[in-house]
């Protein structure tokens, strides 16, 4: 008996450059989640669990799996990482990136493309939020280290408040000056 695959249709493909295949984005998402999981589950055999869940969440359109993967990372950080860990800014950025990528990929089919311009727009939005989140993380480390020094805490909170107010008050990029 001959075995031959049934002829299938031919996909519609974009005819331009500057597109990133979605499997690459899914792979990058899974890799980021796995690296974060390896960071917080370091030295434990349980690291297999977040790795499997993270890889599944990147390739399977399931909000439940994405939620479980994020919660595994957050709870594992709270339980396993020592207080005042210098990895905190990295973890804040990584967790945010994994969150964005999971929810970007969630409604999309397995295969496809995303344009470089769209990725840049998402990255720019990510950096805008990180402009607030990273100072907060640094402040949290400061508070953790110098919790007894009320002066240091007040200075840090004041500096962060000023930074956030400046961010909120500045006109969005592309808005003409009213000079």
């Amino acid at each position: 008996m001959r075995t031959r695959r049934t002829a299938v249709g031919v996909r519609a493909v974009p005819d331009r450059r500057g597109l990133v295949p979605l499997p690459v984005v899914r792979g990058a998402t899974a890799l980021t989640a796995v690296l974060l999981g390896a960071l917080v589950w370091d030295g434990s055999a349980w690291v297999v669990l977040p790795v499997v869940v993270a890889a599944g969440a990147a390739f399977v359109a399931s909000i439940g799996m994405a939620s479980v993967s994020l919660l595994l990372l957050v709870v594992a950080y709270a339980v396993n990482m020592p207080a005042g860990s210098p990895w905190l800014p990295v973890f804040v950025a990584g967790l945010h990136a994994v969150f964005l990528l999971y929810l970007l990929l969630l409604p999309l089919p397995l295969r496809g493309w995303i344009s470089g311009a769209a990725l840049r727009a998402i990255a720019w939005s990510f950096l805008r939020l990180q402009a607030v989140a990273q100072p907060v993380a640094v402040l949290a480390l400061l508070v953790d280290d110098a919790g007894s020094s009320i002066v240091a805490v007040l200075a840090g909170v004041g500096a962060l408040s000023a930074w956030v107010l400046w961010l909120v008050g500045r006109p969005p990029p592309g808005t003409p000056d009213r000079a």
Partner: peptide, 11 residues
Amino acid sequence: APGCPPDALVL
């Protein structure tokens, strides 16, 4: 496309 699984294009 006919006979093909769907593809996504994000722009």
